Deep mutational scan, measured.
Amino acid sequence: IEEVKKIVSEIQSKQLTRITINGNTYQVNSPEELVEYVRKVFS
């Protein structure tokens, strides 16, 4: 979970619009959307 928080804060600070998780690239339009992807991947 700490690793996830680190990734999320990194993305928020860079305002990235794409994230790659487990080889899948997602278009991310908002931090909320990012959190949803993270929940799916780590749930």
Results as ranks from 00 to 15, higher is better:
residue 11 I to M: 04
residue 27 Q to T: 10
residue 11 I to G: 02
residue 3 E to I: 14
residue 21 I to Q: 00
residue 22 N to H: 09
residue 5 K to Q: 13
residue 38 V to P: 00
residue 9 S to F: 13
residue 20 T to G: 00
residue 11 I to L: 03
residue 1 I to R: 09
residue 3 E to W: 15
residue 26 Y to L: 10
residue 36 E to Y: 04
residue 30 S to K: 05
residue 41 V to K: 05
residue 10 E to Q: 06
residue 15 Q to P: 02
residue 38 V to R: 00
residue 42 F to I: 04
residue 11 I to R: 04
residue 7 I to W: 12
residue 27 Q to W: 07
residue 16 L to Y: 05
residue 18 R to E: 13
residue 2 E to K: 06
residue 8 V to A: 04
residue 19 I to N: 00
residue 41 V to Q: 07
residue 9 S to I: 11
residue 24 N to C: 14
residue 34 L to N: 00
residue 17 T to P: 01
residue 10 E to A: 07
residue 42 F to L: 11
residue 20 T to K: 05
residue 4 V to K: 03
residue 6 K to N: 08
residue 36 E to K: 07
residue 29 N to T: 07
residue 1 I to L: 15
residue 11 I to Q: 01
residue 24 N to I: 15
residue 10 E to P: 01
residue 35 V to S: 05
residue 25 T to G: 02
residue 41 V to A: 14
residue 43 S to L: 13
residue 33 E to H: 04
residue 7 I to D: 09
residue 5 K to E: 15
residue 33 E to L: 10
residue 19 I to M: 04
residue 11 I to K: 02
residue 23 G to V: 02
residue 23 G to L: 03
residue 2 E to V: 10
residue 35 V to K: 01
residue 40 K to H: 12
residue 6 K to E: 07
residue 29 N to W: 06
residue 24 N to Q: 14
residue 40 K to V: 05
residue 22 N to G: 08
residue 40 K to C: 13
residue 12 Q to K: 11
residue 20 T to S: 05
residue 28 V to G: 15
residue 23 G to M: 03
residue 2 E to I: 14
residue 8 V to I: 15
residue 17 T to C: 11
residue 5 K to T: 12
residue 15 Q to C: 11
residue 19 I to L: 07
residue 29 N to Q: 10
residue 18 R to A: 13
residue 9 S to D: 13
residue 6 K to H: 08
residue 11 I to W: 02
residue 43 S to P: 04
residue 32 E to F: 07
residue 38 V to I: 13
residue 37 Y to R: 08
residue 15 Q to T: 03
residue 39 R to N: 08
residue 18 R to L: 10
residue 25 T to W: 06
residue 26 Y to S: 01
residue 36 E to T: 04
residue 8 V to N: 01
residue 23 G to Y: 02
residue 27 Q to E: 12
residue 43 S to K: 10
residue 39 R to I: 14
residue 33 E to Q: 11
residue 9 S to G: 09
residue 43 S to H: 11
residue 29 N to K: 08
residue 16 L to M: 05
residue 14 K to P: 09
residue 32 E to I: 05
residue 15 Q to Y: 07
residue 36 E to M: 08
residue 7 I to H: 03
residue 20 T to Q: 05
residue 3 E to Y: 14
residue 30 S to V: 04
residue 39 R to Q: 13
residue 10 E to D: 08
residue 19 I to K: 00
residue 40 K to N: 08
residue 18 R to S: 14
residue 14 K to G: 09
residue 27 Q to R: 06
residue 42 F to Q: 01
residue 31 P to K: 01
residue 41 V to W: 12
residue 29 N to G: 15
residue 42 F to V: 03
residue 43 S to Y: 09
residue 40 K to T: 07
residue 40 K to P: 01
residue 31 P to F: 09
residue 18 R to P: 01
residue 12 Q to T: 11
residue 33 E to I: 03
residue 31 P to I: 07
residue 22 N to F: 09
residue 37 Y to N: 02
residue 25 T to Q: 06
residue 34 L to E: 00
residue 2 E to N: 09
residue 26 Y to D: 07
residue 24 N to T: 15
residue 37 Y to Q: 10
residue 27 Q to H: 08
residue 21 I to L: 11
residue 39 R to C: 11
residue 20 T to C: 11
residue 22 N to S: 05
residue 20 T to V: 10
residue 15 Q to H: 10
residue 35 V to Q: 03
residue 5 K to C: 15
residue 10 E to F: 10
residue 3 E to M: 14
residue 29 N to M: 07
residue 28 V to S: 15
residue 34 L to V: 03
residue 14 K to T: 06
residue 2 E to T: 08
residue 13 S to V: 08
residue 12 Q to D: 03
residue 8 V to K: 02
residue 7 I to Q: 02
residue 27 Q to K: 10
residue 8 V to E: 04
residue 5 K to P: 04
residue 18 R to H: 10
